[in-house]
Design a protein around this nucleic acid. Sequence first.
DNA 1: GCCAACGTTGGC
DNA 2: GCCAACGTTGGC
Length: 152
Amino acid sequence: MKSEPDEVSIDDALAAPDQTVAWTGVRNYQARNFMRDAMRVGDGVFFYHSSCAQPGIAGVAEVASTAYPDPTQFDSASLYYDPKSDPAHARWMLVDIRAVKKTRLIGLPELRLHAELEEMILLKKGNRLSVMPVTSDEWYYITKKLINKNKQ
DNA sequence: GCCAACGTTGGC
DNA sequence: GCCAACGTTGGC
């Protein structure tokens, strides 16, 4: 899951009550569908920093709630306000995310070095999704071999 | 700031 | 349903 660290960084999430943040602001249907339909409480999440000097995986987190309506869509003062969303049938859903730990920054160039990861949606040309699935093979490869790699 | 890639909108 | 125009994302 991508977050702009200027908005919510892994440090911000770790500092939040219960280390948990609501994943507000997703306004893409595919990304919403992954949160609404595919995520289960306890699923592992890579916390990715985007649109910043050093984009990459910055931490590990987990899904901490089932999907519910994103409150910012109904807040006319919010950047994420969506006047077309009907409160009776909310258009945008989100999940809560609990930060587990900060990791070393694993940037895109490093991820691209590994043939085991070449099918990652994150690394596909033109991908712009802010929420996307990771296969269990990719999850274990990154958590076991990259995150826990002896400090280089 | 640039720009490729993609999603959304809306006229027809 | 098509598709041009437009807006957004996000790495560089």
